[in-house]
Design a binder for these strands. Structure first.
Length: 210
DNA sequence: TCATTAACACGGG
DNA sequence: CCCGTGTTAATGA
């Protein structure tokens, strides 16, 4: 299983670091909808994503969820990084979007590697950078785009991470992620279908060629 | 005007 | 039958 690490991270990390990852890392497989991190949880290890995709969600005081972004292979969780530095609790929830494979690294190693390996520092900074850009993009979406644009982007994101133009979600699930009601999603999806952008089926949404 | 909530009918598995 | 879907009416921001 370690060769998976090498394939996805080999170009980023020097051999000595790869060797350490192999020694202390724990390989883990998760199924779709498995919860990886709960809000308020203390983070004990940081994940290196090898395959699959993780959905990152925020939650308001009333328990309403809001989709933030997806993590894909080669990504790590920036929230975890910040938790490790500040010893804090997670502010987000992480749920496996599809069956995924991870390498779990104990947080104690974080600090050690940060001073020891240049490539690790670069990786951490790059991860922060990417997450920040991703978040800005999401904020733009929420603040400046109408819900129909947001919905379309959500579908396209989802299609991208599953490498398929078929999105298997119910209208209700989408409504939860975008923090709105199913009626609205149904109506907007219907409108998109009329515009020949998508095709609707039960439990399935087919994205047509654009 | 547009979202939300509740309610209802339709239909496929 | 159960659940996802499509629609409408009432209400509110």
């Amino acid at each position: 299983m370690f060769k998976e690490i090498k394939i996805n991270y080999g170009s980023l990390f020097e051999d000595a670091l790869l060797k350490e990852i192999e020694e202390v890392g724990v390989y883990k497989e998760v199924r779709k909808d498995d919860k990886l991190i709960e809000i308020g949880a203390y983070v004990k290890s940081m994940p290196l994503l090898i395959s699959g995709a993780i959905k990152i969600l925020r939650e308001d005081g009333d328990g309403n969820e809001l989709f933030l972004y997806f993590l894909e292979k080669g990504d790590t969780c920036a929230m975890t990084l910040s938790c490790c530095i500040g010893q804090g609790q997670s502010k987000i929830r992480a749920v496996a979007e599809v069956d995924s494979c991870l390498y779990m690294i104990p947080v104690q190693k974080m600090e050690e590697w940060t001073s020891k390996y240049k490539s690790w520092r670069n990786f951490v900074f790059a991860s922060y950078h990417n997450r920040l850009l991703e978040l800005l993009d999401t904020i733009d979406n929420i603040a400046f785009l109408n819900l129909d644009k947001r919905l379309l982007k959500y579908l396209q994101d989802k299609s991208k991470i599953t490498n398929s133009n078929i999105v298997s979600s119910t209208h209700q699930e989408i409504a939860y992620d975008l923090n709105t009601s199913r009626v609205v999603i149904s109506r907007l999806l219907k409108a998109l279908e009329n515009k020949k952008v998508i095709e609707l089926q039960r439990n399935k949404i087919v994205l047509l060629e654009s």
